[in-house]
Structures are given as C-alpha cells and as structure tokens.
Amino acid sequence: MTWYAALGAVEQGLVYGIMVIGVYLTFRILDFPDLTVDGSLPLGASISAVAITHGINPYLSLVIALAGGFLAGMVTAVLNTKFKILHLLASILTMIALYSINIRIMSGPNVALLGQKTVFDAVIRLGVPSHLAGLVIFALFALVVLTFIIWFLGSEIGQAILAVGDNPQMIRSLGVNTHTIIILGVGLSNGLVALSGALVAQNQGAADVGMGIGTIVAGLASVIIGETLFGCTTIARAFIAALLGSVVYRLAIALALGLEFGGFRFNPSDLNLITAVLVISALIAPNLKKRLIAR
C-alpha cells in the first residue's frame, strides 16, 4: 500500500466514521438494527449537492442534509413505534422510499459538484495543501461529532436513551416515553449518517443515488472491528472505538485491494466478500482467543 493510498483510507475512515457513530447509536445503544442508513447516506449527499449547486453555502448545506437525515430516521422510528412495524422492515421500507426521493431531489441519478464551492475551500485558503484538505476537514468533523455524542449521552436525555436500549420497561416505569426516545435516537443517528454522506459527496465531487449501497454493512463491520480491537467498557471508549474501527476498516480494505498473489488481484467488486470475511473474523476472534488461551 502506497503512502498516498493509506492517506486516502484514513480520510475515508474518518468521514465514514461519522456514519459509524450513527450506526453505533442505533445498533448498539438503542438495540435498533436500522437499514435506513443505506438511504439516508445518499439523501445527505443529494441534499448537500443540490443545495450547493443552487448557491447555498456548503456549510449550511451540511445542516440541511443533517436535518433531512434526521427526518428520514424519524419516519423509520415512527413506523416502528407508533405503527408496530418490525424495526428491520420499517427501516427497509424507508430505505426503498428514499431511493425514489433521492432521485427526485437530484432530478436524476446524480449531481456533479465540479467547480462548485465546498467545505474544503476554507482550509485550502488557509494554506493547507489540497491533498490534505479532506483529512483536516474530516478529522475536525469526526472529532466534533464524537465529542458531541459523548457529551449528549451523558446528559439527562442521553442517559434515558441508554436506558431505553438497556431496560425499556424500567425506564418507562420511571416516566420516560420510550417511543419519543427511539424517534429522537434513530433520527439523530440518520442525521449523522446524512452528514457523513454530504461530506463524502463534497469530497468526491458528486452525489450519486447508488453511493449508499452497503453502508450498513460497512458500518457494522467498523463497529465490530472497533469493539474487538479497542473495547467498549465505557460509552466514551465505545464511540472512540467505533470511529477508530472505521479507520481500520478502510485501511484493511485498501490493503486488501493492493495485494497481489502471482497474477491474482482483488477487484473493487470483491469488496463485499472482503467485508464479510472481515466481519466474520472480527466476530470469531474473541472466541478463538479464548480457546487458544484455554489450551
């Protein structure tokens, strides 16, 4: 792996890390497996791209994207809590609907951002070399999101969110409306995923309706890698691990794509297989370790 490829992987790891933080919130904290993210990532990208091409400030476009993702998450959560649709199914329904909505937003399957203003302009103007601008911006955003989520989960509402995932009956008997909390939590999660999608679109210079495929798998892979490598004993540690897990995941993918055995090379289309193998090995590693130690 070249230094340049590694840099790109870290960059990707950080920007998708924001998505992974969102996935951790639903998957682990709320115990709500949420596939909406496959739709809300491109939703954030489309909103941001369309906003920018309409002359809206790129930073402001991120806020709108976040709000759009939040709404999408709320739809899934309302379907689940108020209408008793199974969480997985509710999220698949929202995801499918978002496919059409995203094409509507972009008036087509994609929007290019060539020559448009982006959030990277500001740091480039400050003298950061353009190939590092992504890294700087993404690290900044990832840190802000990470700090916010850890702070938020330490608040009174945040503690209630943790309790809903842990023991819904108990927290209901303490006067918390679990439906409201789930709607808030899944909304927030998808808001972060959309923010991640918006930043990705600005970085790669286009939003595309297909860019969300496999988001949840990449998210879960990162979550599991993070937990396995860095642990999850406290909330702060768990979220830091999720972000780092995302970086390790992207590095591992870059490494795998750069491998060469004689005449054989991996194609980008082999990514899904690599991801599956990664997740499986991360899942069985603790078990394997225990057995080896026992011997």
Partner: peptide, 29 residues
C-alpha cells in the same frame, strides 16, 4: 433484573430514578 439498568452504574441508575416523572433535559445525567 427488571428494576435497574445492568450496563449503567449504580449512580447512573439512581440519577435516572431521581428524575421519575420529571422533565429530562441536557443537564448532566
């Protein structure tokens, strides 16, 4: 097992209960 949150600390559980039926905001848990 139903009366408490297992993955929260004793003080966190007590803090949750000290807000029974009250508004929960952004103050520290």
């Amino acid at each position: 097992l139903l009366g408490t949150c297992p993955s929260a600390t004793i003080e966190q559980n007590m803090a949750l209960a000290s807000l029974r039926g009250k508004r929960r905001g952004l103050g520290r848990g």
